[in-house]
Write a protein that binds this DNA or RNA. Structure first.
Length: 400
DNA sequence: ATTCCACAGGAAACAGTGGTCC
DNA sequence: GGACCACTGTTTCCTGTGGAAT
């Protein structure tokens, strides 16, 4: 009997790879990608049209669930406009930021400033009042007579930040044109959440949503077409079973028609099939891929938690079904064991809420009459997943 | 009907960091 | 070098909650 290592290497050497180019199987892969979004592309282009006519465009709001291609479509159209416009006479500048990546409103403005070419000296990261950052941004636009298209992806996060800090950044942004003598600023907001406008000031809403485009969810047919196009390029011919592709489309259609999800599924399924050295991707591979993606998501989330949040998750794990007070007691024990100063119960309650929102822990309010009201917590994921995620954390070595 | 428990969770204050500006 | 700013991560204080027990 031959060595198992040799066996694997030999068969890998002889077998041909079914996955030719996995870069095509990333959702954001653009070249020659067809979005099946003709109507929406038309509307977005029309609302940005004033730029081509050398006048100020209106602000635009784009809605759609994740994986509906809205960001890709907006970026594609703006880069096309940039190609067409005579840059010497009418310099347009596309600025793209994702509000989710910025924890503060100033951070978002600074990120825009960097893309406008303002360096650390002209626009420092810290120390400036928000109003001052904004002023410097507008000065640059004015001085160079730029026509800036400011795309803010996941603008709902910005709206939340603003309600938290009571700043009027959004209002100033939507009214920036009134302060500009030369050049212009058009705002393109992209949002997954159709209801985010509810938390905004009425004045902001009216100027922000001068134009609106809604990206509807993809249906199974559209997802199948999108997958077919990508699979044709990324995989070797006839290496994906039609039923496997259909399953990917069906699974993704169930999650609000998410094309990103569909493409991830077929990519991971392809990787699993290749590892098994199968010559075709089957429905079994797709199911395995779906499970793997879920598990990875949970583990990555757990690994990214700060130490005390990890301790809170562990406290819930060690005392399943425990009330807030009991979880706090378990948490304090863990702090003792790991030589950490425990945080206040108020803060731990807050952390429990945060963990609950992420879906890793389930909390249920229980009324116990004379014994008061509390929340009972339990993990929604296998304890094994938690152990695996935390095993590399040296500070948790003794308690895991 | 009233009391009372064990919290939930909002608001505000605070400490500390890392900066700018004049 | 002192006033000022943004921001994070907390603590402190406080009010509200709803059903079992009385």
């Amino acid at each position: 009997m031959s060595d198992p290592v040799d066996q694997i290497i030999d068969s890998a050497k002889d077998g041909k790879s079914i996955l030719k180019d996995r870069s095509i199987l990333h959702f954001t892969h653009i070249p020659n990608t067809i979005f099946h979004r003709d109507a929406e592309q038309k509307k977005v282009t029309q609302s940005l049209l004033p730029i081509l006519k050398h006048s100020k465009p209106s602000n635009l709001l784009v809605y759609g669930k994740p994986g509906t291609g809205k960001t890709l479509v907006v970026k594609k159209i703006i880069s096309k406009i940039q190609e067409r416009v005579d840059q010497s006479k009418f310099p347009t500048k596309l600025i793209y930021t994702n509000a989710k990546n910025e924890s503060t409103t100033t951070g978002l403005l600074i990120s825009a400033g960097r893309q406008l070419g303002l360096d650390e000296k002209e626009l420092p990261m810290t120390g400036l009042a928000t109003g001052e950052v904004f002023k410097r941004l507008l000065d640059r636009i004015d001085k160079n007579s730029l026509n800036m298209i400011f795309v803010i992806d996941e603008i709902d996060y910005l709206a939340q930040l603003i309600t938290k800090t009571h700043k009027d950044t959004m209002y100033q942004l939507t009214r920036a044109n009134e302060r500009l003598k030369h050049g212009s600023l058009a705002l393109v907001g992209i949002s997954n959440d159709l209801k985010f406008k509810e938390i905004l000031d009425a004045r902001v809403i009216s100027s922000l949503s001068e134009e609106e485009v809604v990206f509807t969810n993809y249906n199974v047919d559209q997802l199948t077409k999108i997958l077919n196009e990508r699979v044709g390029e990324a995989f070797a011919p006839d290496s994906v079973e039609e039923s496997a592709l259909g399953l990917c489309a069906a699974m993704a259609a169930k999650v609000h028609g998410d094309a990103r999800r569909a493409i991830d599924l077929i990519r991971v399924a392809g990787e699993i099939a290749e590892r098994e050295q199968a010559d075709k991707v089957t429905t079994e591979h797709v199911r395995a891929a779906s499970q793997k993606i879920e598990e990875n998501k949970e583990e990555t989330a757990l690994k990214s938690y700060p130490l005390h949040e990890k301790l809170v998750v562990m406290a819930v794990m060690k005392a399943p079904g425990a009330s807030t007070g009991e979880v706090y007691a378990a948490y304090k024990d863990l702090c003792k064991a790991t030589a950490q100063d425990p945080l206040s119960q108020r803060r731990v309650t807050q952390m429990l809420n945060e963990v609950e929102v992420s879906g890793l822990v389930d909390g249920r309010i229980v009324h116990q009459g004379m014994h008061g009201r509390t929340k009972k917590y339990r993990l929604t994921i296998p304890t094994e997943t938690v152990r695996r995620a935390f095993k590399d954390d040296l500070s948790l070595e003794d308690v895991i």
